[in-house]
Write a protein that binds this DNA or RNA. Structure first.
Lengths: 224, 224
DNA sequence: CGATTCAGTGAACGACTGTACACTCAATAT
DNA sequence: ATATTGAGTGTACAGTCGTTCACTGAATCG
């Protein structure tokens, strides 16, 4: 039995023949298979890459016939972009989490790296998708990620501007620093994804030291 | 006419019916179509990603019938690994070029970034392949690149150890620094590939400043 | 209540995929 | 001069692909 039986039609018909636990409106069910399609695509893409999966495969995994796909997405590209937006939302909540650490935190770097690490671990598929398609993707998907990532670096730059030591830096320099941090953290995310869970501590330790080194240079930078 | 006519059989037969410009041994011709296959695959993969190309497509572009593929490679995976090795060789010669800048160079960072930039520009397909498959790739290809990249970071660490300021750093710290540099430079390479040639100066300038910032922190690092 | 809407079905299409097999015929080896 | 080798050919097959179309039937609407 391969069919995932998303909306459980058969099961429901068996269990509650009168009216019990399924006061499911039509829109709810539509939304449910939509989610099933997205989840199936995300799961498969995080293993094999978005380019390497087929419409038929996704629908099969979602427990739906191939043609049903078109009731929800106009094309694979549209589904891809939706996935990007979703994953990006995940990433953004991570950044927000890192930003909201208690202001006078004894060790802000450690807290941030920890946030990143935990978030990656608990949203592996989203991060796999982002990291893979950022570089390996094609067309619309990769470009969307690139733009969103630049935007995110921009937000980070604004955050950085609030620190005392960075108060008088030029925006150019702040962006340079933000880009550097994003690059390093993206690489860290990939290492976390690839390595066994046991290596987490080691990887985060290195990421931490990298950030620390970067910030050691900050007081000696002569902004332009 | 789509056939690339790699080994120019037809043309040769027409032009020099007796014996003129083609004293081509059998092995030479075999090597030639092998190259044609590799080039075709590299070209297509740098646009669409290695996962998204087919054997038939490669052979068509190489001007050869699909089944001929198997005379040169056992599978697509073998071709992929060959491509990785080749691209890695390219990358290595780049590093060597950066290392061999005159020892007391006034500005080693600038020279290194310049070397990177020029090398990326003149080997775009190799770098596209590396960057794409490093993250987006599947199975053997991605893993091979990951290992090779770690090795390369190791070499870089050894190079770094020769600098006065880094002489007393622990190997751990040197690796941490090397990884950071590799991450930043990989991101730079991707930006160079994605941006129009006109933006080269801007991108290299940022990369330069990032490296400069990193090295500003070096004298203040307390090694473990 | 009957009429309508529309998510999901199932068969069919033409195009493309990787691979098996028997072949040709020029470059080599004897 | 003859035999052998092997790179490249051509046909064929069983799958999978995306997409079309007419359809069913339950939830919704009037």
């Amino acid at each position: 039995m391969d069919r995932a039986d998303v909306n459980g039609v058969t099961a429901r018909a068996d269990v509650c023949s009168k009216a019990m636990t399924a006061p499911e409106t039509r829109n709810e069910r539509k939304e449910r298979t939509r989610r099933a399609l997205l989840d199936a695509a995300l799961g498969l893409a995080s293993e094999r890459g978005f380019a390497g999966l087929s419409l038929r495969e996704i629908t099969k995994q979602a427990g739906v016939v191939p043609t049903a796909f078109y009731r929800h997405f106009e094309s694979m590209d549209e589904l891809g972009v939706t996935l990007v937006e979703e994953s990006m939302r995940t990433l953004r909540t991570m950044i927000r989490g890192a930003r909201n650490t208690p202001d006078g935190s004894a060790d802000l770097i450690r807290a941030s790296v920890r946030t990143l690490s935990e978030h990656v671990r608990s949203h592996e598929e989203h991060y796999w998708f982002l990291v893979r398609e950022r570089y390996g993707g094609t067309g619309a998907v990769r470009q969307t990620i690139g733009v969103e990532l630049k935007l995110l670096a921009g937000e980070l730059a604004v955050d950085l501007a609030r620190f005392d030591r960075l108060r008088d830096w030029s925006t150019e320099d702040l962006h340079m620093l933000a880009d550097l941090i994003v690059s390093a953290m993206l690489a860290t995310a990939l290492e976390l994804l690839e390595a066994p869970p046991g290596a987490t501590a080691e990887i985060t330790a290195e990421a931490e030291r990298q950030l620390r080194l970067i910030f050691l240079g900050v007081p000696h930078w002569r902004t332009t």
